[in-house]
Amino acid sequence: MAENKQLDLNAKWDAYLDLGLRRFAYSSLAGAIGGLLLFRSPVTRWASLAFGAGVGIGSAYTECSYKFDGSPAKLSTPTISDTPASLDGQE
């Protein structure tokens, strides 16, 4: 049973690395092409490439966190009963 869980974890890490590297490469390429087409300054071209790489890594991280942990906990808005009494106007 423990060996089966280890194999499942290894498969998830393999999928994470594959997805992460692919999205990093494709987004960096899209950022580089966009930078070449839209910007003249080398600094803004590098910034466009870095932005694309960040988007790729972020999207890969988000999708892989769903695979590892399942759906993230939903944030709820505080209700009146959650607020301290001093904020309600009651002393």
Rank of each mutant, 00 (worst) to 15 (best):
residue 5 K to T: 12
residue 82 D to L: 03
residue 13 W to G: 00
residue 47 A to P: 01
residue 45 R to K: 15
residue 88 D to L: 13
residue 64 C to V: 09
residue 32 A to S: 09
residue 16 Y to F: 14
residue 8 D to L: 15
residue 56 G to I: 04
residue 83 T to Y: 13
residue 72 P to V: 02
residue 29 L to N: 01
residue 81 S to H: 07
residue 21 L to A: 15
residue 46 W to R: 10
residue 59 S to G: 02
residue 79 T to R: 15
residue 89 G to L: 03
residue 87 L to N: 04
residue 63 E to D: 08
residue 60 A to Q: 05
residue 47 A to H: 06
residue 61 Y to L: 09
residue 31 G to R: 04
residue 8 D to F: 07
residue 21 L to D: 07
residue 19 L to P: 00
residue 26 Y to H: 08
residue 53 A to N: 00
residue 48 S to I: 03
residue 46 W to E: 04
residue 41 S to G: 12
residue 57 I to Q: 05
residue 81 S to G: 00
residue 79 T to V: 04
residue 57 I to V: 15
residue 28 S to T: 14
residue 32 A to V: 14
residue 41 S to E: 13
residue 54 G to F: 11
residue 61 Y to C: 09
residue 8 D to P: 01
residue 51 F to R: 06
residue 49 L to A: 09
residue 7 L to A: 13
residue 52 G to E: 08
residue 27 S to C: 15
residue 86 S to W: 14
residue 38 L to R: 06
residue 29 L to K: 03
residue 91 E to W: 06
residue 64 C to I: 05
residue 26 Y to G: 01
residue 16 Y to G: 09
residue 80 I to T: 09
residue 12 K to N: 06
residue 91 E to N: 10
residue 11 A to P: 00
residue 85 A to Q: 13
residue 27 S to F: 13
residue 57 I to F: 05
residue 75 L to R: 05
residue 72 P to A: 02
residue 48 S to K: 03
residue 34 G to L: 12
residue 54 G to A: 09
residue 19 L to Q: 15
residue 45 R to D: 01
residue 31 G to H: 00
residue 17 L to E: 08
residue 8 D to Q: 08
residue 79 T to S: 11
residue 20 G to Y: 06
residue 27 S to D: 03
residue 15 A to P: 00
residue 12 K to Q: 08
residue 68 F to N: 01
residue 82 D to E: 11
residue 88 D to Q: 15
residue 6 Q to T: 12
residue 79 T to Y: 06
residue 70 G to I: 02
residue 49 L to S: 03
residue 47 A to Y: 07
residue 20 G to T: 12
residue 90 Q to F: 04
residue 7 L to R: 15
residue 68 F to D: 01
residue 50 A to D: 01
residue 87 L to D: 03
residue 53 A to M: 07
residue 7 L to F: 08
residue 87 L to W: 12
residue 88 D to W: 07
residue 64 C to L: 09
residue 39 F to P: 04
residue 3 E to R: 10
residue 91 E to D: 14
residue 35 G to L: 02
residue 26 Y to F: 13
residue 68 F to K: 02
residue 18 D to W: 10
residue 4 N to Q: 14
residue 90 Q to C: 02
residue 4 N to K: 14
residue 80 I to R: 12
residue 46 W to V: 12
residue 52 G to Y: 05
residue 45 R to H: 05
residue 24 F to R: 01
residue 89 G to T: 06
residue 42 P to T: 04
residue 85 A to I: 15
residue 17 L to V: 09
residue 18 D to C: 05
residue 89 G to K: 06
residue 67 K to E: 11
residue 49 L to D: 01
residue 88 D to K: 15
residue 89 G to V: 01
residue 42 P to F: 06
residue 65 S to F: 02
residue 80 I to Y: 11
residue 60 A to E: 01
residue 6 Q to R: 14
residue 18 D to S: 08
residue 57 I to Y: 05
residue 26 Y to V: 14
residue 60 A to P: 03
residue 68 F to G: 01
residue 88 D to I: 10
residue 1 M to C: 11
residue 1 M to K: 07
residue 90 Q to M: 12
residue 17 L to F: 14
residue 82 D to C: 02
residue 64 C to D: 09
